[in-house]
Design a protein around this nucleic acid. Structure first.
Length: 577
RNA sequence: GCCCCUGUAGUUCAAUGGAUAGAACUGCGGACUUCUAAGCCGUCGAUGUAGGUCCGAUUCCUACCAGGGGCACCA
């Protein structure tokens, strides 16, 4: 039984002995509404808090404070050693303070348990997370960067929570966007051989934007592009096949370089070209679809008035995204025996996904029940919507390079080897970007402004890394001075660092449950700030101080938690910076 | 027009229905000279509007206002 459960029991028994009706203090089981044991908003207010007095006052015909006093009086009569003191505060909260011993023990536990922070909500489950989804022949823009960052973090959190993780990437290597790029490639020719992969990929991306432009303005070009599109599907034109294979390969290689910098890798790469025929089969053998204006559609509003009709097969006989999605889902479940299949996309796809899922519910309910769609916000420009069709995109690569360059400038004159500088600027630059994406609720849009959205101080990835590097430097000095972690503490009140450290597993649990990395990001900032304050006001390494070993232990515990936390965000923790 | 999402300091974000609505950036003002100053301390400053539910609403409900996304052959 952990401390929370012990206190819950204590409260329950006290209520019983006072003849106060409350079946359970857990919120979902309580008949009268919200009664719970939680952490107070402010660390000064104790370690646990309950609102039972406020909730139960009315039905017991008394006021919250009086009831709270009655309960506290009873609690104080046989207070277990696990609780230091109890106080009434605010409108009738009962606050529990834990003794120093509890914090010393949790510090010890963190040092002894390398996996501190893990939970088992996905124990024994196989979970696939699909994220990033860039399209060959189109640029890897900051939206993909966002999807990748969020997807990688969620994958790590789910894995840390006991799941067997399968990472998947779904790439659109077929469809009108490819035809547009190839149309222009046929006109302009291929780039020079000696260009780098990313330069070639950029060349293709630019031609795609151009192709898209003429598709919208030039009727003749539009027809030609549609012809090319068909030829790509049926592979009837040798020249087109060659360009297709080349362009696909180059852009995929360029993506791979980016994944490497971001620290992500996939178990599966699914492609629209493979999945499309599977989807077509599903559509043609199902009777939920209808013919309409030459196209094959699914009328989702028949099943749910909030949904709408979508085209699955175009009047030209080509499968759309929706059909491919059906094929993709089938393929995923054939490859792996999944308990859960998570798809991460921007919220602009939320409505389509609802329609596709409705179709799936009817055709393959066994898959539909295991699907989870996680939507995130979009990167926006102050000037309006970014669209690779229009060419006003900021590529993921340029953003990463820019961020890393900033760091490089900062550490130019520092005492690092060139190799170290390169590594640090990469780790810190990527961290600044990732953190700026993960610090907020994933549903919200991010207004892109390099100056403001990527910060290196305050509430930022580099701040977390800096705090870790600083703790690490303290630990190195401790080693030199031969001060080993110990557990004899002073009698002073527990520090904020101690009050926060033991909560890490709860934070991870909640992040995993809600697929929300930002709880971890916010927690890490809180604890890093607490440690930096502690560092500023305390001499940790001091041979004449008998409690110095405990301070070292605390520093080590902090460094382990922040390292684990950063890992869950997909951020590296350099030992020096 | 219909459907979905979002409105919190000047700005970017927090806040399982709870306590004095927290941070960061910006502005202003400090400290130490120590184990990493990408740091620490202080200070100014906010819940779109109007109702409702509740002991208690930034959070839930309704209407309105504002922004974004989606609404048949793009993904």
């Amino acid at each position: 039984m952990n401390i929370k459960e012990k206190i819950e029991d204590l409260i329950k028994n006290t209520l019983k002995s006072l003849n106060i009706e409350a079946k359970d203090i857990r919120p979902d089981e309580h008949p009268f509404g919200r009664v719970s044991l939680e952490h107070p908003v402010d660390l000064e207010m104790g370690d646990f808090s309950t609102n039972i007095a406020m909730v139960l006052a009315k039905e017991n015909k008394t006021n919250p404070k009086e009831l709270a006093e009655k309960i506290v009086k009873k609690l104080n009569k046989n207070l277990p050693t696990e609780v230091l003191k109890i106080q009434i505060a605010g409108a009738g909260f009962i606050n529990f303070y834990l003794p120093k011993e509890f914090f010393v023990n949790s510090t010890r536990e963190i040092l002894e348990n390398k996996n501190f922070g893990r939970n088992n909500i996905f124990e024994g489950k196989k979970v696939m997370v699909e994220y990033t989804q860039p399209n060959p022949f189109k640029p890897f823009h900051i939206g993909h960067l966002m999807s990748n960052t969020i997807g990688e973090s969620i994958s790590r959190i789910v894995e840390f929570s006991g799941a067997k993780m399968v990472r998947a990437n779904y790439q659109g290597d077929i469809g009108p966007h490819v035809a547009k790029a190839i149309y222009e490639l046929l006109k302009s020719g291929l780039p020079e051989e000696d260009k780098s992969v990313s330069e070639k990929a950029r060349y293709i991306g630019n031609l795609y934007a151009k192709g898209n432009d003429v598709y919208e303005t030039d009727e003749k070009a539009k027809k030609e592009i549609e012809e090319i599109n068909k030829k790509i599907y049926d592979k009837s034109d040798k020249k087109i096949n060659e360009i297709y294979d080349w362009g696909r390969r180059i852009t995929l290689e360029a993506f791979e370089e980016i994944y490497k910098i971001l620290g992500t890798s996939f178990n599966y790469y699914f492609f629209e070209s493979i999945v499309a025929p599977i989807g077509e089969k599903i559509v043609s053998s199902s009777d939920v679809f209808e013919k309409s204006d030459g196209a094959i559609v699914f009328r989702a509003e028949k099943y749910n008035p909030k949904l709408h009709t979508r085209v699955f097969i175009t009047s030209q006989g080509l499968p759309t995204y929706e059909t491919k999605e059906l094929g993709l889902t089938k393929m995923k479940f054939e490859k792996e025996n999944l308990d859960l299949s998570v798809v991460i996309t921007a919220h602009e796809q939320e409505e389509y996904m609802k329609v596709v899922n409705k179709a799936l519910e009817i055709i393959s309910p066994e898959f539909a029940s295991k699907m989870k769609h996680v939507v995130h916000g979009m990167m926006r420009l102050a000037s309006g919507k970014m669209s690779s069709r229009k060419g006003n995109v900021i590529t993921g690569e340029s953003l990463i390079l820019e961020s890393c360059d900033e760091i490089l400038k900062k550490i130019e004159n520092r005492d690092f080897t060139e190799e170290e500088k390169k590594q640090i600027s990469k780790d810190v630059g990527v961290s600044a970007l990732k953190y700026s994406i993960l610090k907020q609720n994933i549903g919200g849009d991010i207004i892109y402004d390099f100056e403001k959205s990527i910060s290196f101080e305050g509430d930022s990835g580099p701040y977390l890394q800096y705090s870790f590097a600083r703790a690490n430097s303290v630990l190195e000095k401790a080693k030199k001075e031969n001060i080993l972690p110990g557990f004899m503490s002073d009698d002073f009140a527990p520090t904020e660092v101690e009050k926060l450290l033991y909560r890490f597993p709860e934070i991870v649990f909640r992040s995993a449950q809600e697929f929300e990395p930002h709880y971890i990001a916010n927690y890490l900032i809180d604890i890093a700030r607490a440690y930096n304050t502690y560092y500023g006001s305390t001499k940790i390494i001091d041979k004449n101080d008998p409690t110095s070993p405990y301070k070292v232990a605390l520093t080590l515990a902090f460094s382990l938690v922040i390292k684990n936390g950063l890992y869950l965000l997909g951020i590296k923790a350099p030992e020096r910076m």
